[in-house]
């Protein structure tokens, strides 16, 4: 049972995407697509034929599989509703999770470059720039939670007896939220709803993909988003997770609630903010880094 928690992330992540889109549409006074639209999109894409660029090498074909597999592997390591086995085979190390995701990102950027179009290269270059800027704040925020619980094993961090209500954790959560926005390509950083050449990051890399490959890439993207939400919940607000005195049913309820709150926060940020110019991103992500640095200092100062 503990080893199959990742199925929740894999199956429900398109729904989370649908919920975010629906909330955004309602906030903007539109009716919006149905909640299950991402599922319909994926199902249709899986049935479609693919168009492969003439310049593409084997990397173009390998990238969707590597991206999908890396995100799936990373979500196997995360305790979603239960810390019982601390992830698959008890591995569950946060640093392993983050850098498994980085492997997927590396191949995503390679796939964008391999198609041989200008926009793909542009998207890859921007993606790697953002990745460099996000990584310090993300890791520092994670390390705050890790230091507070004395382990980088996420099963221990989220497990019973861990401290999670302190100023340090709130600051780290704020920094981690900004990092999630940047990682999932949401509005102050990237606009997920447009294919405008000047702004796109994630869409730029996927421009040459179609059919089954595009479906895998998109699904991996939804899964990564939900995986990061789950990580945020595990690291900074693990209250209600099974294995710390709650049953599985209650834990699933708590998890769904936390996911809904994070989806709502994401939709709120996207509806109220404007897209930033790319060269202003270092200010935003620098602020996130300072937040996470402050959270670490605060933890050292207050000792909790």
């Amino acid at each position: 049972m503990n080893n199959f928690q990742f199925v929740l992330i894999a199956l429900l992540s398109p729904l989370a995407q649908g919920i975010i889109k629906k909330i955004k549409a309602l906030m903007q006074g539109r009716v919006g697509a149905p909640l299950l639209q991402p599922y319909y999109d994926l199902a249709r894409l899986f049935r479609k034929d693919m168009v492969i660029p003439r310049t593409a090498s084997w990397i173009f074909h390998a990238a969707p599989y590597v991206v999908f597999a890396s995100v799936l592997t990373a979500s196997m390591l995360v305790p979603v509703v239960s810390t019982g086995g601390a992830g698959l085979f008890g591995i569950g190390d946060i640093i392993a999770i983050i850098y498994t995701l980085a492997l997927g990102r590396f191949f995503l950027a390679l796939g964008g470059l391999d198609a041989g179009t200008a926009f793909g290269g542009e998207g890859s270059s921007r993606e790697m720039t953002v990745a460099i800027l996000v990584e310090p704040s993300m890791m520092l925020a994670i390390f705050t939670a890790a230091v507070a619980s004395g382990s980088t094993n996420i099963g221990k961090v989220a497990g019973p007896g861990s401290v999670f209500f302190s100023p340090a954790h709130v600051l780290a959560l704020a920094a981690f939220f900004v990092a999630i926005i940047a990682e999932t390509g949401r509005i102050p950083v990237d606009n997920p709803d447009t294919h405008l050449e000047l702004t796109m990051i994630h869409e730029g890399m996927l421009l040459e993909y179609s059919g089954k490959y595009l479906a895998m890439m998109e699904w991996a993207h939804y899964m990564k988003q939900m995986l990061l939400f789950t990580l945020a919940a595990d690291l900074f607000f693990p209250y209600g997770i099974s294995g710390a005195g709650f049953g599985i049913a209650a834990a699933v309820g708590f998890w769904a609630g936390k996911m809904l709150i994070l989806c709502f926060g994401m939709a709120f940020v996207e509806s109220t903010r404007a897209k930033m110019r790319f060269f202003q991103l270092p200010s935003l992500l620098g602020a996130a880094f300072v937040l996470s640095a402050l959270s670490m200092i605060t933890f050292i100062m207050t000792g909790k």
């Binding site: 302190s166 100023p167 709130v170 600051l171 937040l291 207050t302």
Partner: peptide, 12 residues
């Protein structure tokens, strides 16, 4: 740790 929360908020 209410005082910590408030003072850290001021620092922020």
């Amino acid at each position: 740790s209410i005082t910590d929360f408030i003072t850290i908020g001021m620092l922020l």
